[in-house]
């Protein structure tokens, strides 16, 4: 027999139990067994032999994987600053209670609700050099089409443009909500002093919303390190692997070549990279904040 207290606590536990079951079954267990799997040479057909860290050392010598890591960092370096800065300016422009501003907020957020397959379908028709929208426009002015998707030096930049167009809505909304929290009397005082607007921006607005800037940068880092659909659908990683990110590498190795131990190892490296970048930014941000006080 359980004591009344134990029975009561068991009854309480039943509220969280359904979620915890799903959580442990579909998130924690696959994570742990994935770490285990990365130490095996395994394929889909049941064959598996323990190889220790061989998958990892193979990855670090695999030029295809190293190129994918380089591509991913390059992509993050292109998109995250753009997705931290462009939405900030949009938010500054749209931070007013007019119908026009509300309409444009809706316009800039609308792309965020589309799925990656629609976004890539649309943008392929914009960027392709044979009859794409941009090619038609610049062709009208007598210029040759730009090989956005077939030039290895341009393809990641094209992916970044697509991604910024797709993802800028959410950071804009986050900035808008942060701007609403800034006390208005500071601006009124600044206006009396005739402070120019760019000084107001750097001395009042930016310090006041610095936490949101950090939040946006961390969120976008986590998101953009997981780049997959855009290159998978438009270029299949080409030309010459110039647009293959880490996740596409995992997908090809795990679900096309069925070398699942190797793919599991690559996905653990991606997890580690994302975790380290997130923690680093978090610590830098909290240290700076501590010094400010």
């Amino acid at each position: 027999m359980m004591s009344p207290k134990a029975r009561r606590e068991f009854g309480n536990f039943l509220f969280v139990a359904p979620y915890l079951c799903v959580f442990l079954w579909l998130l924690i267990w696959p994570l742990i067994s994935g770490m285990g799997l990365s130490l095996f040479k395994a394929d889909l057909f049941g064959g598996a032999s323990f190889v220790g860290f061989e998958n990892y050392s193979r990855l670090l010598q695999d030029p295809v994987f190293l190129q994918a890591v380089g591509n991913t960092f390059y992509f993050v370096a292109l998109t995250v600053p753009a997705l931290a800065i462009i939405p900030l300016f949009l938010a500054l422009m749209l931070n007013r209670a007019t119908r026009t501003a509300a309409f444009f907020r809706g316009v800039f957020f609308s792309s965020s609700v589309l799925s990656v397959t629609i976004v890539t379908l649309i943008w392929r028709m914009v960027l392709m050099s044979d009859g794409g929208f941009v090619a038609n426009i610049i062709g009208f002015f007598g210029f040759d089409p730009i090989p956005f998707l077939s030039d290895p030096n341009l393809v990641m930049i094209s992916m970044s443009i697509i991604t910024v167009w797709w993802c800028l809505g959410l950071p804009m909304m986050l900035y808008l909500s942060a701007l609403q929290q800034v006390p208005q009397d500071i601006y009124e005082a600044a206006a009396l002093d005739n402070t120019p607007w760019w000084k107001q921006l750097t001395h009042i607005t930016l310090p006041a919303i610095s936490r949101t800037v950090v939040l946006v940068v961390i969120m976008q880092c986590v998101l953009q390190f997981q780049l997959f659909g855009q290159p998978q659908l438009i270029t299949q990683g080409g030309p010459n692997g110039a647009s293959r990110p880490i996740v596409l590498f995992i997908f090809e190795v795990g679900f096309r070549r069925w070398d699942i131990g190797y793919a599991a190892a690559a996905s653990q490296i991606l997890f580690a990279i994302i975790l380290m970048v997130t923690l680093a930014q978090y610590f830098v941000a909290s240290r700076r904040e501590g010094r400010g006080r």
Binding site: L27, W29, G34
Partner: peptide, 26 residues
């Protein structure tokens, strides 16, 4: 109230940091 409530909640929060790719193969 139930035993290990706060520990369990922290574990759930940790789940926020797990990217889909780290679990998808298994």
């Amino acid at each position: 109230e139930f035993p290990f409530r706060d520990v369990l909640f922290v574990v759930v929060l940790f789940g926020l940091a797990i990217p889909e790719q780290a679990v998808i193969i298994t």
